[in-house]
Structure formats: C-alpha cells, structure tokens
C-alpha cells in the first residue's frame, strides 16, 4: 500500500507527514510541561535553602515505602505501555489492549496508593500545613513549607496522571473498535509520550520528596 493513499488531513502531504508532526507537537507540549513543573523545582530549591533543617524534617515524615512502591508501579506501567506501542506496530491489537489495560490498572493503583492511603495518613497525622500542623517548635516553619511543596506537587502530578488514565482509556476504546494498525497508530504513540512523561515527572519528584531530606 502506498503511503500517499492513506487518509490524512488536507494540510499534510501524507499520513506519515501528519503522524510525525503529531509526535513533534506532543514533544513541544511536554517541553512546555517541563517549565510548568520547573517552578515547583525552583520553589523546592529556594524554600529548602532558607529553611534546611525544618524542610528536611518535613521530608522525614513522608512514607518512603509507599513512595518507592509507587515509583516501581509507574515505571512498570510505562514499560507495559511501551510494549503496547511495539505490539501495534506489528498490528497486534489484542496485545495492545492487554498492555494498555495493565498500564491503566497500574496507573489507578498509583492513584489509590497515593491519594487513598498516603494522603489519607498524612492528613490524619496533621501534616497538612495550617494551625493544626503536627510539627511544632523551631522546625515547624520549614516542615510546613515542605508540605506545601509536597501537597501541591503530588496533587498536580496526580491530576496529570488522571488525565493520562483518561487518555489511555480512550486508546483502549479506540483499539477495541479496531481503529489502529501498523499503518495507523499515531494516537497510541502520542499518548505513550505523555504517559511516560508523567512517569518521568514522578521519577524526579521521588528523591525531592522522599530521599534528599531523609538525612542524618
């Protein structure tokens, strides 16, 4: 089958031209997202700089086990999705759906662990900044700032993940209707980029939240 014969929007020369442009567009969007999260990283640097002891004391209150497990879950989810992309490039829709479903379930597991269990415990232990904040004394200021960072960063990452779940679900639905094949799998690849990016953000947030403050 000739490439030019595949359907494509009228501003493109060919389906391949359109597909590669969509991939480029997603990468540019992700570059924009890098700067979005970049603000959080800068706040982390500045707040920790002014209040190191308290900031680290806050970090020691986090649940390392859940955090680590969640990192493993997201990496695995991203790997499953990548396998799905490879399968559809070999026109294997059944395997694509299986891989996406696994990726989706793992994403959901992350959200449950993060917001159902970890946040729940954090809130129960009065770690949300405010008048009833658990840590008192000299370290209170910095620890509160850490938890401002923690709650804003995890909430925004969680929202991105939630959007990702929607997108992966949409891919599963479309794959179920048999819309993808080796010739046409652009949406699968584009959503994959986003899904892996959400993973990436977490990989960077993980040491910032759980590891660096856990010092002697």
């Amino acid at each position: 089958m000739s490439d030019a014969a595949l359907p494509h929007a009228f501003q493109y020369e060919s389906a391949r031209h359109q597909a590669r442009t969509a991939i480029a567009g997603m990468w540019l969007f992700l570059a924009s997202e890098v700067l979005f999260f970049g603000v959080l990283f800068l706040s982390w640097i500045v707040c920790r700089h002014w209040n190191q002891a308290g900031f680290d004391a806050g970090a020691r209150q986090t649940a390392l086990a859940i955090g680590t497990l969640n990192t493993v879950i997201l990496i695995t989810s991203s790997a499953f999705y990548t396998a799905g992309v490879a399968f559809i490039e070999a026109s294997n829709t059944r395997r694509l759906i299986q891989c996406c479903a696994l990726a989706w379930v793992l994403g959901l597991a992350f959200l449950i662990l993060k917001f159902g269990i970890e946040w729940h415990e954090d809130l129960a232990r009065h770690l949300f900044p405010g008048p009833r904040f658990a840590i008192t004394g000299e370290l209170r200021t910095g620890a509160q700032l850490f938890f401002v960072f923690y709650f804003v960063a995890t909430a925004l990452h969680g929202l991105h993940l939630l959007a990702g779940l929607g997108l992966v679900g949409w891919i599963i639905r479309r794959a179920g209707r048999g819309e993808f094949s080796a010739q046409y799998s652009t949406p699968v690849a584009v959503v994959g980029l986003y899904w892996s990016f959400v993973d990436m953000v977490w990989i960077v947030l993980f040491p910032l939240i759980y590891l660096i403050g856990r010092g002697p």
């Binding site: 924009s32 979005f36 603000v39 959080l40 706040s43 900044p129 509160q144 401002v148 960072f149 804003v152």
Partner: peptide
C-alpha cells in the same frame, strides 16, 4: 506561560490556605 501558570497555582494555594511558599 507554563511558569506563570504554576506560579498562579501557588498563589491561589497560598491565598486559600493562608500558607505557602
């Protein structure tokens, strides 16, 4: 623009919860 967006998120957080960076 994304930098402004996140800055405004932090601003709104601070205004709502009376604590922030």
């Amino acid at each position: 623009t994304p930098v402004l967006a996140m800055t405004l998120v932090l601003l709104a957080f601070e205004r709502i919860f009376h604590i922030g960076v």
